[in-house]
């Protein structure tokens, strides 16, 4: 999610969800119910910030973007992911 927001700041919830589906080629299908609590938790942690915008349809939408703290967090998560996958890969190669 953070990655998405890094690339494409200013997305609302539904768009984020669709994006995850698209990017992962439908492999990752996030549970819709967990989306908002996750977003709000990240907002609470200060990784992302939100603001209200009015869309063309007249409906207000809450869009999110990454904060500096969020970028750092993303970097950390990515490097951790790389470490983990690398480790897993090594194990798989040995087998």
């Amino acid at each position: 999610m953070l990655k998405i927001l890094l690339r494409r700041p200013g997305l609302h919830g539904y768009a984020i969800m669709s994006m995850i589906k698209d990017w992962s080629g439908d492999v990752l299908r996030p549970e819709e119910g967990t989306l908002y609590p996750a977003l709000h938790r990240m907002e609470e942690s200060g990784w992302i910030r939100a603001k209200w915008v009015t869309k063309e349809s007249g409906r207000r939408a809450r869009i999110y973007e990454l904060t500096t703290a969020g970028e750092k967090q993303l970097e950390m998560e990515e490097s951790r992911w790389r470490d983990v996958t690398a480790a897993v890969n090594r194990v798989l190669r040995m087998a």
Partner: peptide, 15 residues
């Protein structure tokens, strides 16, 4: 919070 969820559903319907 309600509004955000409503807007999510509206988006879904649009799709």
């Amino acid at each position: 919070i309600d509004e955000e969820i409503e807007s999510h559903i509206a988006e879904a319907i649009e799709q």
